[in-house]
């Protein structure tokens, strides 16, 4: 845990690992073979899970932490950081992931929540957490609980970038707004956001989150990745977008290149030209409220 000027946030060494992942792509993988493909394509890290979000969406049922055997198999076959997902509020899944030595735990809305009221107390762990958020208030609540990295939620497994854009814009414009407020307005703003006052003050002063902010949930093409980077993401998570496409290895490579050269349309055109079809997408507006993953957690 880091405490400076009354600001209690995650341990600096954990925020530092998120710094090292910037400008990179973190790819969802379900087995060692996919992890190898991801590493070879230039992934900065992999996320181990049982099923990719689009399969979770299709199959329904309860989605849990990946099996220990699978996580170990993935850890053994790559040299890049290995992350894994725990259910929201399921601190025992998190304890198991900590014991396995995963490099980051994603307390994720993609899995079925274990607790509908409380998220995990992330300060209680020796490994860092990344959490999802739809807006600034949610991001600050998670950072207040000890998350060392944020990612905007988007709508996982949809292959549709619209929610990722909405959430990134909400966080970025929320921060910009705070920088325009007077000191006397900040307590009321903290109340309205449902966010810790000290963090609200910190954002008002610095105009940025005290931990890196990445994008997730709907990235399917190199253009999607570059869009999120131009909107202010510092790195991207790609879930179903890679291994549900027709050309995983080529697409993974193209998304890695696009994330580096996100402001260079010539490079973006070049990396996109050889690609086959992206994963099929969903119209998020046609999904029932109960099918949305982003509304899990608060």
């Amino acid at each position: 845990m880091t405490e400076s000027n009354g600001l209690r946030i995650a341990d600096r060494k954990h925020i530092a690992l998120a710094e090292m992942l910037k400008g990179g792509v973190i790819m969802d993988v379900t087995n060692a073979e996919q992890a190898k493909v991801a590493e070879k394509a230039g992934a900065a890290a992999v996320m181990a899970l049982e099923r990719v979000p689009s399969d979770i969406r299709r199959d329904g049922g309860v989605a849990r932490m990946a099996s220990v055997r699978k996580i170990k198999e993935i850890q053994d076959c790559v040299s890049i950081p290995v992350m894994a997902k725990a259910r929201i509020g399921h601190f025992v899944e998190a304890q198991i992931l900590e014991a396995l030595g995963v490099d980051y735990i994603d307390e994720s809305e993609v899995l079925t929540p274990a607790d509908e009221h409380y998220h995990i107390d992330k300060y209680a762990f020796s490994v860092p957490f990344v959490c999802g958020a739809r807006d600034l208030g949610e991001a600050l609540r998670r950072i207040g609980e000890g998350a060392a990295m944020m990612r905007t939620k988007g709508e996982a497994g949809s292959g549709n970038i619209v929610e990722a854009v909405r959430h990134m814009r909400a966080v970025v414009s929320g921060m910009r707004r705070l920088t325009t407020l007077g000191d006397e307005e900040l307590m009321t703003e903290a109340k309205n956001l449902g966010a810790p006052y000290e963090l609200v003050r910190w954002i008002a002063k610095h105009g940025t989150l005290p931990v890196p902010n990445f994008s997730a949930g709907g990235i399917a093409t190199p253009a999607d990745a570059a869009l999120m980077m131009q909107l202010g993401a510092e790195a991207v998570f790609v879930g179903s977008g890679i291994f549900k496409s027709k050309d995983p290895a080529a697409r993974a490579e193209a998304i890695v290149r696009a994330t580096t050269h996100f402001r260079d349309p010539k490079v973006l055109a070049e990396v996109s030209q050889e690609l086959d079809d992206a994963m099929p997408g969903l119209d998020v507006r046609k999904l029932a409220e109960s099918d949305l993953l982003q509304t899990r957690g608060w």
Binding site: G23, G42, A44, A45
Partner: peptide, 14 residues
Amino acid sequence: PGGESTTLLKLMGD
């Protein structure tokens, strides 16, 4: 800088 050396190598090669 710091980062993932395999990612950097891949992009440097490209």
